[in-house]
Design a binder for these strands. Sequence first.
DNA 1: GCCGGGCTTTACGCTGGCTTTACGTTTCGG
DNA 2: CCGAAACGTAAAGCCAGCGTAAAGCCCGGC
Lengths: 217, 217
Amino acid sequence: MRVLVVEDEAALADAVARGLRREAMAVDVAADGASALEHIRLTRYDVVVLDRDLPEVHGDDVCRSLVELAEPPPVLMLTAAASVEDRVDGLSIGADDYLPKPFAFEELVARIRALARRPRRATGVVLTHGDLIMDVTRRFVTRRNRPLSLTRKELGVLQVLLEADGAVVSAEDLLERVWDEHADPFTNTVRVTVMTLRRKLGPPPMVETVLGAGYRL
Amino acid sequence: MRVLVVEDEAALADAVARGLRREAMAVDVAADGASALEHIRLTRYDVVVLDRDLPEVHGDDVCRSLVELAEPPPVLMLTAAASVEDRVDGLSIGADDYLPKPFAFEELVARIRALARRPRRATGVVLTHGDLIMDVTRRFVTRRNRPLSLTRKELGVLQVLLEADGAVVSAEDLLERVWDEHADPFTNTVRVTVMTLRRKLGPPPMVETVLGAGYRL
DNA sequence: GCCGGGCTTTACGCTGGCTTTACGTTTCGG
DNA sequence: CCGAAACGTAAAGCCAGCGTAAAGCCCGGC
């Protein structure tokens, strides 16, 4: 779990970071709002622990800036004031939870863990053709419910063929899409890869050769 | 308040039960670990008083088995040994408090009340994969009901792999999610950590390497 | 301060996949 | 039926990427 602690008071920031690291979290620290935003832009955090009273850019402003992001991380706001109004304020700005100082460290940990529970990402793109199923994001291919262990190139070739959806794909196209730029244009490796792929796919034959043109499913 | 007393020595169990009932608690008694687990499965206890030295199923094993429950009750562990190591052991297994024998009865009552008052342990996300069980909030991992002592990095790596749920996770992703920003992008510490993790997980192999892509369960 | 455990780096052996080479097989026009 | 072009197949070498051991470093605990 990756956490960003935004706190200008160095001693407190350090103490919190150490404690969280002991809880097996990966902790980055930012001392001001600008630096915090920079960090969040560059890294995908599971939770951001944000002190409300920051110099320069206020914690509230940081919070507001986050809504503009595509995937804003959950924010746990820390504040010195413990009044109910502040709590409402914090949450209305966009914080996901609120913890008044001083707090029990154990509670901080518990709330961070609660916030980190994000919805499971659904299984990504799934390509199928007949009894062949390919989960692209998981790099997982099955035929007749039998799992296949394919190498990188085999997987790439198969994916291009599946995306072509029955259209003919030339060997040059495959070279361009599966191999990198400095591939020998006269190589034989595509033919070899297609062969091993066919072998692993097993009968009945699935990859058809179109003479002089390329391959298709 | 509902309390379960797990104690094989009948005289002591009876004395404790009578005393607690006088304190207006509803007390059940179990004489061995198996019976205790049965009780806990069927009834929602506010506190479980657990003797560590049990015949057959040891108190530690009872404690560990509780991790698998959706809502484990707080556990107060009784033990003859009063050393610091035992205390640490008990707590790391998942007990919430610890009381060395012999004890003053008043202290027992006080600790039971304290445990019942305490907000329920956030039974955090419990991740499982086959015979592997990981309680994220307690940083506690078992395989085949055997506890594993994992370091922070090992725990983090395992958690990311479990959350990926069979998808391939690249070494860069692991670096990003388990290590903090000071990590060298070209390090091979991930490989070393995966190795020690595999070693601790024991056979059969659980972490698979996908060449050129990363790791998966 | 000293000690210990965990984290990291360094170095090296080795597997597995990629590529090339060489040759057999099929296809199709003449 | 011939032959060349295109494709399939086997075998072997190369090498990035991975696993592993060992040593050093660093931080936290006593």
